[in-house]
């Protein structure tokens, strides 16, 4: 039996609008992933700790407040420091188009926005995991 893939859906920063994060969490559950949802208001340290403790395959970050550069770079730095930067980080939320390449430069693998549906999100995650396998 194939291993059930585990995804962490994290809500770093102070923004507590959880709707998008919860929809993605449920969509991934329906697609057969095991989902660990952190709840809102997590520090980068808390996110990376949960990712390590839960031994997840993918880290998803929900970001809506505009603090995406700051939070993503801190999380990715921490992951490098802990030697877990092999885990793909994906971002969902309200990210201006101009910022997407810059997030990718930081090391974010995929960025989803309000128009991304379950096909796109689930398909991209599967493709990322297949590429790594």
């Amino acid at each position: 039996m194939p291993k059930t893939l585990r995804v962490l859906i994290g809500k770093p920063g102070l923004d507590g609008h959880e709707t998008g994060a919860k929809i993605v969490a449920r969509m991934l559950m329906d697609a057969g992933f095991e989902v660990i949802y952190t709840g809102p208001r997590q520090t980068p340290e808390m996110i990376v700790r949960s990712a390590l403790e839960e031994d997840v395959d993918v880290i998803g970050l929900s970001l809506l407040s505009g603090a995406h550069f700051n939070l993503c770079s801190r999380i990715l730095d921490l992951m490098r420091a802990k030697g877990v930067n092999d885990k793909p980080v994906i971002v969902g939320g309200i990210i201006p188009a101009d910022d997407i390449p810059k997030l990718q430069e930081l090391g974010v693998v995929a960025v989803f926005g309000p128009r991304s549906g379950s096909k796109e999100i689930v398909g991209t995650i599967n493709a990322i995991l297949e590429d790594m396998a």
Partner: peptide, 11 residues
């Protein structure tokens, strides 16, 4: 505050 980093004046 450490938690405020990146969020000041954003929304």
């Amino acid at each position: 505050a450490p938690m405020a980093a990146g969020e000041v004046g954003k929304v």
